[in-house]
Design a protein around this nucleic acid. Sequence first.
DNA 1: GATGAATGAGATTTCATTCAT
DNA 2: AATGAATGAAATCTCATTCAT
Lengths: 217, 217, 217, 217
Amino acid sequence: MSEHPWIQELLQIGGKEGQFSEKQLKILEAAVEMFAEKGYAATSTSEIAKKAGVAEGTIFRHYKTKKDLLLAIVTPTLFQSVAPFLAKEFVREVFDNEYETYEQFLRAVFSNRYAFVKKYLPAIRVLWQELAFHSEIKQCFQRVFTEHVYPKFARIVRHFQEKGELAEWPVDSVIRLTITSLAGFLAARFLLLPDHNWDDEAEMERTIHVLMNGLRR
Amino acid sequence: MSEHPWIQELLQIGGKEGQFSEKQLKILEAAVEMFAEKGYAATSTSEIAKKAGVAEGTIFRHYKTKKDLLLAIVTPTLFQSVAPFLAKEFVREVFDNEYETYEQFLRAVFSNRYAFVKKYLPAIRVLWQELAFHSEIKQCFQRVFTEHVYPKFARIVRHFQEKGELAEWPVDSVIRLTITSLAGFLAARFLLLPDHNWDDEAEMERTIHVLMNGLRR
Amino acid sequence: MSEHPWIQELLQIGGKEGQFSEKQLKILEAAVEMFAEKGYAATSTSEIAKKAGVAEGTIFRHYKTKKDLLLAIVTPTLFQSVAPFLAKEFVREVFDNEYETYEQFLRAVFSNRYAFVKKYLPAIRVLWQELAFHSEIKQCFQRVFTEHVYPKFARIVRHFQEKGELAEWPVDSVIRLTITSLAGFLAARFLLLPDHNWDDEAEMERTIHVLMNGLRR
Amino acid sequence: MSEHPWIQELLQIGGKEGQFSEKQLKILEAAVEMFAEKGYAATSTSEIAKKAGVAEGTIFRHYKTKKDLLLAIVTPTLFQSVAPFLAKEFVREVFDNEYETYEQFLRAVFSNRYAFVKKYLPAIRVLWQELAFHSEIKQCFQRVFTEHVYPKFARIVRHFQEKGELAEWPVDSVIRLTITSLAGFLAARFLLLPDHNWDDEAEMERTIHVLMNGLRR
DNA sequence: GATGAATGAGATTTCATTCAT
DNA sequence: AATGAATGAAATCTCATTCAT
């Protein structure tokens, strides 16, 4: 009857499958939308139930507490948000020269994350907003970043520094500049001015251009 | 007796002075801290009252509703956040060659806004978080930006494009890249990784370097 | 288990049945009693809850606001208070000579409304008191009166004027005198001096006697 | 500057004079109006203060509690409402043949009370509404009635019964019918349908006519 | 599993009253 | 006498959670 394709995909991290009932998906979908629109704390479970077309009790059958419901949304989103770096083949891809330059790498990451944000925008909004207030989420994010993203990213940066493509700045700085350039574009594009008349291709090209010209030695 | 220097300064937009009672300042201070920490919706007025050391009723004597209290914090912050562009002398300063290059201009804006964020961090957190959920705030922000910030910024960009210092990209793109570079740095520095071991001077220099190399023709 | 017969009957306007839960009836019963005793504004929802033996939240599950609770009591009472005139058969009854004289008609109305007031006294108190302060109720009352009661009443008066039983006074005056005579008796009997030693039969006879002697041509 | 003639007159029971300050009168005036409009319990002292143009504290300087303020309005009104019967000369007036018939007496009382209600309408509304909820007021009213009004009234009725003008009904019934006829007219005229197009003279004549025809032997 | 009525703790807000000035 | 800021108790209302069906 009803369809929850993107929610289901968002949840498929690690290939778990078919474990979400129709009602559960409706609840998640309703919750994401409401949390994104009004914020977690300002959304009541009764609103979610109404929007999902289920009884209020049903929510608590699937998620012990309201917070559990939040985490069910936010945790997969968190992992998906850094998904490329979590992939096992990722570093191999880079060093096996699927990407011969940092610019190629950038281009790949940018368009991949652009597609991701576009698809999962509501869930990302929720993650982004609630990150600030829930220390478990923040800690989880930091752990994932330090353990999985940072080391791989750093290795790549060092690699292209050694190849002479990038300036010999501190690796942290290069990573920071890269991420904020990407995130800055995506935030402007999707959060702050979604209604502006964007030429996405061109804008991403310019962002990469600035970054490459600035980071090049 | 007690001191609320930065709150008072934050509120002094337009030079109104001495119009805030001791209790009012305590309430504002407590509210900013709690809202920054837990978010507006998750903070109760009784917590604020307790932290401010006043009776709960006192809050509502000064601010008719909880939302009014939020706006009393957020509105001045919003204006302060784009303060340089609101100054009458601002454009004159640029064209009277106090800034001979876009880079000089950038350097001035960056260090000015860096100081601003550092000083008013909690209030900015609140503004930033609640911007997403309160359409009045969002609209106010957009109005201020389109009416006051954008035109001046655009004029400056065009000026330096004509002088040949900046590439002939669309003005909007140049502005966007400039702002997200600055905001990206400040967000990383103060919101995401405040505990990282930052070399602020160097990092800002690198940010400006990237931006100038990228934007230069 | 517990009994709320008169409340239930009061609500049965238009034949809706069985749609009030046990708790809802308890709440209504408690509310009527308290409102009648202390007035709407001076009665707190917590008192009502306590008297009804339910949690305070339960009241608001059934009635969104305290005012809704008032209206749930007052609206049916208002309609019941002019019930005879709302009945479809009413005018027919009069003209089909179930009542051959105005006096017979009076006698019927008086005893019918006497029984009504006696039965629903608390609810009527509430209606009467709050009529003065809530413009919606007042307007509703006036609408019902002008649309349903007045035209029928006027037709009856004119009928008996034509038959020569009543003086050729303005119809409005005859109606006014009739109603205030009835209402005056009932108010004295049930509101002002309920503890006085009334001979109801005799008093009503005298009231009708006065009215008929005065209105006769 | 401002004038409170009717309030001052209302308070002059027993000839006390000049004992009310300007502010006090403003407070009373504001209170009467608000109480009449919204009811005692639904009117806040701050509203009264605002309407009276004084500080909230000032009210409590003159009236220890909000209830005292109510009583300051209601008690004089109560006495004024039965004023003719409180006058020492009253019984003498009747028996010294200022009024030779019950009808003359009625006419005098009706027009006197008509003028009274017209003049002090707001205060009367308040008295009437709050009578139901405050036992002190109710008791006071009953005491005044039984001690002062009833005996005189009864004597008059008996007098005209003995003269053969009135039927030999129980005195209580005659009094009840007289008062409800008058009160019924005044209530309809001033409370229920103040906006109706009344011919006061004629209506009062008809009311007296009905009463006299009905009560006559 | 699903429901939704019921709960009661707690949120926001109101308000009569006090008191320092 | 007058003020009005401050109070805190109480009022209205919300909401996450439970539980009998």
